[in-house]
């Protein structure tokens, strides 16, 4: 008879294989010497070298990083403010706002992409880097708000009242009590937003104009002309960067909230 322990173990191994086998295969074949992706013909780093020399790819990477960084910073600043208001003030119509904020997380991305495109066309904003950034802020904002609100809900409001009672203004209270205690959630949500932005294809596809090609868009256009191992190499780098960021997010969110605040508090 098979012990239940073994069944569980096999199920988990199967699930992991299902999730990661294609990714591993992709990474392994990025070191393939053959220009045809399906047959192994020996170890080579030539595709990585080719990657480094590809000017168009370099530009796409630059665009991707710029968009991810800008949209993350904007989403985190706006999201923290919105979360504070929603959790700490008596807001009229909070139930409607809650629903309105969750909706972008569940509506199909393609719908969001199309509607953003129509919107930009309607208000006559030329498509480009800016429109992509706005699109990315739009889908990252609900996520950031969600993560920070969860953290705020666990934070004792008495701590903020204690700060007020001890002579801190509303701003000082936020700066020296609320913000440090929110830090893990802020960093965690920022890393998640950054990763999602970096990987996004659908919304970017609809909102990008000429000169705003991002890495995922570039990869897609390269595939259209035939898959070369250069794409494998690029994908391998992307997977590594994404995984590293997600890992960092998880570590930082799990960390106990404690940190030293040195220096003076004046401000």
């Amino acid at each position: 008879m098979i012990k239940p322990r073994w069944v569980l173990l096999m199920a988990s191994v199967g699930a992991m294989l299902f999730l990661y086998a294609p990714v591993f295969l992709l990474i392994i074949f990025s070191f393939n010497a053959s220009p045809m992706s399906v047959r192994w013909e020996g170890l080579s780093f030539q595709w990585y070298l080719q990657l480094l020399g590809d000017h168009a790819l370099f530009e796409a990477t630059q665009n991707s990083l710029l968009i991810a960084l800008t949209s993350t910073v904007c989403a985190v600043i706006m999201g923290t403010g919105a979360a504070m208001v929603l959790e700490r003030r008596a807001v009229r119509g909070v139930r409607f706002l809650n629903a309105a904020l969750v909706l972008p997380l569940v509506i199909p991305e393609i719908l969001m992409g199309v509607s953003l495109l129509l919107f930009f066309v309607m208000i006559q904003v030329p498509l480009g880097l800016i429109t992509v950034m706005i699109g990315h802020i739009a889908f990252n904002l609900p996520l950031v708000i969600l993560v920070i609100r969860m953290r705020l809900r666990k934070l004792d409001p008495l701590l903020e009242e204690a700060a007020r009672d001890l002579g801190a203004s509303a701003w000082q209270t936020f700066r020296w009590v609320t913000l440090p205690l929110l830090r893990p959630a802020i960093i965690g949500s920022a890393l998640m937003a950054f990763t999602i932005s970096l990987d996004d294809f659908v919304v970017t596809f609809f909102t990008a104009g000429p000169g705003a090609t991002t890495l995922p868009l570039k990869v897609f256009s390269m595939i259209k002309t035939g898959i070369t191992p250069e794409i494998n190499a690029l994908s391998a780098v992307l997977v590594m960067v994404s995984m590293a960021l997600i890992g960092l997010a998880l570590i930082l969110q799990g960390k106990p909230i404690r940190q030293k605040i040195e220096g003076s508090y004046q401000g």
């Binding site: 204690a162 001890l166 009590v177 440090p180 940190q259």
Partner: peptide, 15 residues
């Protein structure tokens, strides 16, 4: 006026 809160409400991130 200063207050001593029921569950102290000490700042957990400060010494």
């Amino acid at each position: 006026v200063n207050m001593v809160f029921q569950n102290y409400a000490l700042f957990p991130h400060m010494t």
